[in-house]
Write a protein that binds this DNA or RNA. Structure first.
Lengths: 176, 176
DNA sequence: CTTGGTAGTAGCGAGTCGATACTATTGCAA
DNA sequence: TTGCAATAGTATCGACTCGCTACTACCAAG
């Protein structure tokens, strides 16, 4: 068996194990993933299309999922001022609590670091193969600037809030 | 963000990307995973309960999935002679073709090896955390014996067919 | 001011998924 | 030998995913 085939098989099993581990209470895998993403993304990256892009799903599916989360009072829905078509979904306090309650694997730090590096590489490759967005952290972006008056985004041309430097941005481009 | 939390987030995304990549034609993720497993498992490991164990799902869910695959003529269903309760699902030629057609990631060999090692470790840890079976290859098992007349399983106490040494076994125990 | 592209959604059909409940078996123990 | 608990597999239910098509609202560029 070639190594790439083995990776596919491992991903298959890992996928299942991970989903089974998280799945708890009344949230399914897709809802958990969306909720977790919304908790990490900045204010420009919490629209249905963006979530769909991140989760490699269609807008239709994500729309349904976000509505389900909304019915469960885990997110709120807001319209955008600048573009009337765009909607933004933010975590409620209950939503944030649900994210906190999610369990991950429990590896010793050294091993976790090795695993995290491998996973980052793998994700990056798979994104590249499908021409997808990197969805990296704002502060690692080529448009991120540190100015005397504070952080600034050179792409959107606006000042950034302090907490946004560590959030996911849909416009993220790896620094050159 | 601690490293284990980051791993959970990476797994979330990886899970989605992998599923989206594979999903093709008229097979969904669960069906693909079951089909792939059936193609790798030995004759003692192709029953619904075993598949359920491997995929971290319930017997009920897997039963449904296997019936769906059966309707699509990708697997056949056979009863066991030794235990009337047990059923075995084998790939048909069409099923084997569908497995062949599955695409995996496409990494250069060196990187693939690093990724595979990390994934194996991660899977092993997650299995251990849930007291699950390893589902390793027959020839890496502590009960696997090379005898003059051929390979032998010291647990089931029977002779092994040549191809079985490289198949997945539900009874697999890591060599001591 | 039309026209083309984008954002979001509804609704459909197949299927996942956990849960519950049920039927055959099997295996063990009194 | 019977009797009973454990096991294998299924059916069914309700909530939901998922891709798809169709549709509306909105934006932008000619």
């Amino acid at each position: 068996m070639n190594t790439n085939t083995e990776i596919a098989a491992l991903l298959d099993r890992l996928t299942r194990l991970h989903a089974a581990d998280r799945r708890s209470g009344n949230l399914n895998d897709a809802q958990l993933a969306a909720l977790d993403y919304l908790g990490r993304a900045n204010r420009f990256s919490r629209a249905p299309s963006t979530v769909a892009d991140y989760l490699a799903a269609t807008r239709g599916t994500v729309s349904q999922t976000l509505k389900a989360l909304s019915r469960k009072r885990l997110v709120t829905e807001t319209g955008s001022q600048t573009d009337q078509r765009v909607r933004r979904y933010d975590l409620t306090a209950a939503g944030a609590a649900a994210v906190q309650a999610m369990s991950g694997p429990d590896l010793p730090e050294a091993e976790a670091r090795v695993a995290a590096r491998a996973l980052r590489t793998l994700v990056a490759k798979m994104i590249a193969a499908r021409d997808g967005r990197s969805f990296g952290l704002c502060r690692t972006c080529r448009y991120h600037q540190e100015r005397p008056e504070g952080r600034h985004c050179a792409l959107l041309q606006l000042a950034l809030r302090p907490e946004e430097a560590d959030q996911i941005c849909r416009e993220h481009r790896v620094a050159a």
